[in-house]
Design a binder for these strands. Structure first.
Lengths: 211, 211
DNA sequence: AGGTGTGAACACTTTCACAGCA
DNA sequence: TGCTGTGAAAGTGTTCACACCT
């Protein structure tokens, strides 16, 4: 049933979900594609096309039922469950993630933190104790980790990825500025701040020069 | 001359630039589109198409000269200069950026940090003193800020964006999980960690369910 | 021979426009 | 009437294949 769904569709689905949750908080019970589009900076047709890839959730003439659609989107995105996350690299990025409340609120539970540095291993982060990267396989399997966040220097990232996947991790979020190779079927997302800054730099520079 | 260039092209250009710098470090003097493609996980034709949008930089039968192409890419991306960056929100994300060495290495200088919290205002971060968000306009204009990074709660983000742009900021990197509205011509990039995690969640969930 | 630069073919995404249901 | 769901059209991005230069 489920054919290939584009990346941009998924990104927008996240957006719609956030919009719906906000609308529910404001006690709205129904919503139209037009309203959803305004919230997420897209068009009504786009919203309907996106949703239609997963089913028919609306009522003609009326719109979508906020609560119902919220549930459907949660199920589609797979966030109607909790995810177990291990963090490799207890530096600043790691700390930022650790303290980011939305993370837990949205269903992602940090169940392990690892680092190589001797002065970090053994320390406590909240209820977690930082463990040595050597123990990665152990943490992934014993803690039943689904997702691994890589926040280590570029040179160490590939090895961490290989071992995490081998040990059973099912998806990877990579902050290291390097192109990781992972087996077919293991989703990988990169977050590269320098790249984002360069995109801004380009946009400004080319606007300056283009007539 | 410069027609519309796609976002994905720019992302790949960043990649090529990083690859070239690495190759230069390894004392390679020329490089083919095939090699560049391998490095960035794309195809040779794609590399050539991307580059050809900005000019003809290669020699047929030979490839591209590493140093020369590096310079051209730097100029295209606008990173042959330094950028002045202000950071609004001195929380964990802010701290992570502040300590991220690649940031400065790649040409982005943090020249101002602001926050609302009284217990943060006045503190020192390296050579910078955290200033109150009230002073945003002042910082942007007196420090000649190009880019503003927004790392404040979602509810405060739009106001910060409006004031930053009004005061002369030319681009915005937004970490707040909300859809900002900025005037036409002001580039905006969003970094939304929950969204990235949800994309992983979807990929895993749909793979499980699809046949 | 070797590898670029590029039009043409192809694939994918978005927008349009309207039939159809509440 | 109002708004969804969806084929068809338009627009964008990627891949192919080859002429052309060194």
């Amino acid at each position: 049933m489920t054919h290939k769904v584009s990346d941009s569709t998924i990104r927008r689905m996240s957006h719609y979900l956030r919009a719906l949750e906000e609308m529910d908080r404001q006690e709205e019970t129904t919503v139209s594609s037009t309203q959803l589009a305004e919230w997420g900076g897209t068009t009504a047709a786009q919203v309907r096309k996106d949703l239609s890839q997963f089913g028919s959730f609306g009522k003609r003439g009326l719109g979508y039922e906020v609560r119902g659609l919220t549930e459907r989107l949660r199920a589609i995105l797979g966030v109607d469950r909790r995810w177990r996350v291990a963090l490799v690299g207890a530096g600043r990025i790691g700390a930022a993630l650790f303290e980011y409340p939305n993370f837990r609120l949205r269903g992602f539970d940090l169940v392990g933190v690892l680092d190589v540095a001797d002065d970090k291993v053994g320390r406590s982060w909240g209820e977690l104790t930082i463990r040595h990267v050597e123990e990665l396989e152990d943490v992934v399997s014993s803690e039943d980790v689904d997702l691994v966040i890589i926040a280590v220097p570029a040179a160490a990232a590939q090895e961490v990825a290989d071992r995490a996947v081998e040990a059973g991790a099912r998806g990877i979020l990579n902050f290291a500025p390097t192109q990781l190779r992972v087996p077919e079927g293991v989703p990988l997302t990169d977050v590269n701040l320098v790249m984002e800054m360069e995109a801004l730099s380009f946009a400004i520079t080319s606007a300056e020069q283009g007539s």
